[in-house]
Design a protein around this nucleic acid. Structure first.
Lengths: 110, 110
DNA sequence: TTTATTTATCGTAATATTGCAATATAAATA
DNA sequence: TATTTATATTGCAATATTACGATAAATAAA
């Protein structure tokens, strides 16, 4: 009925889904890529980098922040954003898990 | 307006977003985890493993397949599913990119 | 204090997702 | 062929997401 049955899944499954979902939009991928590209905290430049209106970007930043994928601190009258290790380390382990499975099967499946 | 402005982002950004989005639901994480756990193709057992109705699971499997995260082949009158390297290798590279960035910054940011 | 700059929030329209009952399809088996 | 078993599709209701204009809030600078 359009609402995810969160309660029927494990905490881990829900956490991973929240993290993946937060990355499930091209604007949010673009934000992450930009933070990597400039290789530093960036303060008040994201709005100029994306083809979206300021309120929309603010909303995307909020989602990334809630998921634990970025963090932001006030720096003067702007906000300084960078990637947050917390979120990424959780997904990282999941992908390592997947990866070792795929390597051990050596694609002999199906 | 509820529709993602796909055309305003790069092909890579859209591809990564589609892959992440496909993983952005606990049921789909559960499917991936189960495929890893049994460590083989599985034929016609997924419906018993998840707390969702058969049509709902069918829909989730379709989304994972469309994204390139699982593949399924007919095996008798059941379908045999396993993880698809194609999708996962694309995300893997993105995470490696993120990871080397995070390590080089050594969390000194913000 | 006033003004400019930056980011957040509210409200709302358009669209997408989730879930399932009902039903259809397809292959295996009796 | 008829039946069983497994999966897909359709249709729909409930809810979530995306996007943005208008506006608010918060800080810096004049």
């Amino acid at each position: 009925m359009g609402i995810t049955k969160t309660a029927n899944f494990t905490v881990e499954q829900n956490e991973l889904a929240i993290l993946a979902k937060a990355m499930g939009h091209p604007a949010r991928i673009a934000i992450i890529q930009y933070l990597i590209k400039v290789n530093s905290c960036i303060c008040g430049e994201i709005v100029n980098e994306l083809p979206l209106a300021q309120p929309t970007i603010s909303q995307h930043l909020k989602e990334l922040k809630n998921a634990g994928l970025i963090k932001g601190n006030f720096e003067g009258n702007a906000i300084c954003y960078c990637l947050d290790e917390n979120g990424f380390s959780k997904i990282k382990h999941f992908f390592q898990h997947i990866d070792s499975h795929l390597e051990s099967k050596n694609n002999q499946c199906c």
